[in-house]
Design a protein around this nucleic acid. Sequence first.
DNA 1: ATAAATTTGTGCGTATGTATC
DNA 2: GGATACATACGCACAAATTTA
Lengths: 365, 365
Amino acid sequence: MVAKYIQVKEAIKAWILEGRITPGEKIGSESDLMGQFNVSRHTIRQAIGELVHEDWLYTVQGGGTYCKDRRKSDTHGTMKTKTIGVMTTYISDYIFPYIIRGIESYTTENDYSLLLTSTNNNVDLEKKGLQNVMTNNIDGLIVEPTKSTYHNPNLNYYLNLERNKIPYVMINASYSELAGPSITLNDEKGGFIATEHLIKLGYTKVLGLFKTDDLQGIDRMKGYIDAHRKHHLLPFPDMVISFSTEEKGEKLQEQVRAMLTRKKENRPEAIVCYNDETALSILHVIRKLNMKVPEDLSIVGFDDSHLTEASEVQLTSVKHPKTELGRAAAEVLINLIENKNPDAGGSIVFEPELVIRNSTKPASS
Amino acid sequence: MVAKYIQVKEAIKAWILEGRITPGEKIGSESDLMGQFNVSRHTIRQAIGELVHEDWLYTVQGGGTYCKDRRKSDTHGTMKTKTIGVMTTYISDYIFPYIIRGIESYTTENDYSLLLTSTNNNVDLEKKGLQNVMTNNIDGLIVEPTKSTYHNPNLNYYLNLERNKIPYVMINASYSELAGPSITLNDEKGGFIATEHLIKLGYTKVLGLFKTDDLQGIDRMKGYIDAHRKHHLLPFPDMVISFSTEEKGEKLQEQVRAMLTRKKENRPEAIVCYNDETALSILHVIRKLNMKVPEDLSIVGFDDSHLTEASEVQLTSVKHPKTELGRAAAEVLINLIENKNPDAGGSIVFEPELVIRNSTKPASS
DNA sequence: ATAAATTTGTGCGTATGTATC
DNA sequence: GGATACATACGCACAAATTTA
């Protein structure tokens, strides 16, 4: 004698296998089924309960019971680990603790834990990190693209995430080849308002320093050029220096030192920096040359990090939403994981603001 | 309102994680559990049913319900996951990014990744975090004890880690009941040098503010008292305020405000703070009272965090090895995991240093 | 070795809460 | 707001397997 709930279970499973019920279609309500099989509600629930566990059905309270598309769910990898991976260029430096705080605030509220790895903006380390998070059975991934300007040799890993139905979101930048949502700052506008601020203060020779192996730097540079165009200025020759992560130290400092020791008519009067870290590094050069900020030179940073206040002169900087951005990324990702709002998976672009401190002053005409 | 069967389920899961029930051992019968939890049989069965599905238990009709050995059933069994858990009170605040940076630097060099959770210095969240890391099959755990002054209700979880041969190290403080190695700062000496600095500057009425739900605070307070004793001073009455994590905000500020508005002969001339965060909070009070640091009041912080430079007046503070400490903890733990140096598993105590900035000056006698 | 007691499995009835439509 | 549908929870009865006296 086979148990009644087993009979019910097999019958419903048969409906699905025969195609009488297709994925997404609603099966009858519990009371319907009670009538059809002439059993109690308890028995129906027991059958449905097991079918839900075995991934044939899913239920929506108040809604109904539906047939699940089993092809979508990998038979082995379906168990939720309640862990999301976070792979950023850095973890504990600069603005990253703030971004991670934002991620953390939302994930802990929702009982997820974080698996952290960093890439140091190096694609080999990114590969290692991707292998790591993928073997660790995570539910989703928040990733800051590494060297986003160039072709990424790890694209296959991301495509494999898609094949395995592991959702991911990108922050700060995105690989154009990938379809996942991204949570970013409008860097082009940021570069624009930083540059326009200096132009409006009366400067015409504005030096731009941009790290161009990340899209952020490319976009900020675009904004820098746009601001010049809008105000009918052409950037002076040599007035844009682009550098890579590997060159951001002494090499950049040397180039800037060379420009600042030119004779006055060729010397920059103001500098737009890729970020606050760059600005601080340049402030060291300026100090060694016995020049003063903002008296001899106005300078604008980017990201509004804690560095703006760590230096002697407080940096005018473009605000980066850091914590807010991290939280938004976590929110979008968890929505994707739990499939609550299918349309909540869109990209978000934050708008930048300029925070004026005392590293900039009007040009002394 | 959490469903009863969920509560029962979590309680039974906790038994297993705490080691109160070991693999193969029988749990109480359904009627036993009905009595223990004071719920109906249906509810017990619902809880057990899910735990069976999730592979925590198995049942034998007529026999009973038993705890399953999850290691064997897991395909990755005893295989190293190359993941270590990190459970600190906070993740992205204050000095923790620096500690985590240190941990991270060593772990990534050795191809480990980090599973992060935070406890907010709350034992319930600590329990959740412990359950989390234990179900995630980690190779080892770095933990900052929560509320280390008090008896810890989660001791069983740590003991179960030992039973399962999962090594762990404690940082910043340690539970005296546990045998694992700890990587700490000599907080007593730190409190001593901070206080002695003020005494040597000529102050006799030195207020001490210490958070005493963590051992760090207790030890720092000990150092504060020792410094007085060594210089044949008695701490003035009321000159030590101890507070808990929950009281660190307005309540503490109110108490200090009351002391600072006393008449001059009873008013403190200098303050030793539990940490820089406390110092900053007190600086707000001082500013509102229109008093000046260090002219009217000298103040010493603790941890030498970035906050020392964020405030208007740069804080004299006791140096905390942050990054170095994190790295050392990771090193000890990985040594334990890989069993390279059986004798490398010892505790480490870092010695503090005083960093003198301009929040302290000699007493104007 | 057998019967009784215990323990899990199946099944029904009922009531109330809560989300969806 | 009301109807519908799933979620939680209590109670009872009997069956089947195991343990124990």
